[in-house]
Simulated scan of single mutants.
Amino acid sequence: MNTSTLWWGLLFGSIGLGYFIYGRKQREIVPLVCGIALMAFPYFVSGAAWLIVVGVVLMVIPRFVRL
């Protein structure tokens, strides 16, 4: 782990917390699940490039998927 992966993980984890709180308060499943995934995936992804790609994909999913 290097500094960039730590910072990207912190950024995506913070955004994930926001998605999680929003999904829980609005009772919407997609932002809730994406928030949990955004908080958890930095532990399993190594490398800054993959971290950014997966994080951006998880951030845009609630924008296009409505259940």
Results as ranks from 00 to 15, higher is better:
Ile52Asp: 02
Gly16Trp: 08
Arg66Asn: 12
Trp8Ser: 12
Gly18Ala: 06
Gln26Thr: 09
Leu38Asn: 04
Ser14Ile: 10
Gly35Leu: 07
Val65Cys: 07
Gly35Ile: 01
Ile15Leu: 13
Phe20His: 04
Tyr22Gln: 06
Arg66Leu: 14
Ile29Gln: 02
Leu10Thr: 15
Leu51Asn: 11
Thr3Cys: 14
Phe20Tyr: 05
Phe44Ile: 09
Met1Thr: 06
Gly18Gln: 02
Gly23Phe: 10
Gln26Trp: 04
Lys25Gln: 09
Pro42Asn: 06
Phe20Lys: 00
Val53Pro: 02
Ala40Trp: 00
Asn2Gln: 03
Pro42Ala: 11
Leu11Gly: 09
Leu67Trp: 02
Val45Tyr: 03
Phe20Val: 02
Leu11Thr: 15
Ile15Pro: 00
Gly47Ser: 04
Ala48Gln: 12
Leu67Arg: 04
Phe12His: 04
Tyr43Leu: 15
Phe64His: 12
Ser46Leu: 08
Gly9Ile: 05
Ile61Val: 14
Gln26Ile: 15
Glu28Ser: 05
Phe64Ser: 10
Pro62Gly: 03
Tyr43Thr: 08
Phe12Pro: 04
Val56His: 07
Asn2Gly: 14
Val54Tyr: 06
Tyr22Phe: 15
Leu32Gln: 08
Gly35Lys: 00
Leu32Val: 01
Val65Met: 13
Met59Tyr: 11
Val33Asn: 08
Val57Asp: 05
Ala48Ile: 10
Ile61Cys: 14
Val45Pro: 07
Val60Leu: 13
Thr5Cys: 11
Pro31Glu: 08
Ser4Asp: 07
Val54Cys: 09
Ile29Tyr: 13
Val33Gln: 01
Gly35Met: 01
Val33Trp: 00
Leu32Pro: 02
Arg66Asp: 12
Lys25Asn: 05
Thr3Glu: 15
Leu6Ala: 05
Val60Arg: 03
Phe41Pro: 00
Leu10Met: 13
Gly55Ile: 12
Glu28Asp: 07
Tyr19Gln: 14
Ile21Cys: 10
Arg63Ser: 11
Ala49Gly: 05
Leu17Trp: 10
Ala49Phe: 07
Gly47Cys: 13
Ile15Ser: 01
Tyr22Trp: 15
Thr5Gln: 15
Phe44Ala: 09
Thr3His: 06
Cys34Met: 14
Thr3Ala: 15
Trp7Met: 07
Thr5Ile: 07
Ile21Leu: 12
Ile52Asn: 09
Leu17Ser: 11
Leu32Tyr: 08
Leu38Thr: 11
Cys34Pro: 10
Pro31Gln: 06
Met1Leu: 13
Val57Phe: 13
Ala48Lys: 10
Asn2Leu: 02
Leu67Val: 11
Gly16Arg: 09
Lys25Gly: 00
Met39Trp: 03
Val56Cys: 06
Ile61Thr: 11
Val30Tyr: 13
Gly55Asp: 07
Ala48Asp: 15
Cys34Tyr: 04
Phe12Trp: 14
Ile36Leu: 03
Gly55Trp: 09
Ala37Leu: 02
Ala37Val: 02
Ile52Trp: 00
Tyr22Asn: 03
Val65Phe: 08
Gly47Arg: 03
Asn2Ala: 05
Tyr43Cys: 10
Gly13Trp: 14
Met59Gly: 06
Arg27Ile: 13
Gly13Glu: 14
Tyr22Cys: 03
Phe64Tyr: 15
Leu17Asp: 06
Ala40Phe: 00
Leu58Asp: 13
Asn2Thr: 09
Leu51Ser: 11
Leu6Gln: 04
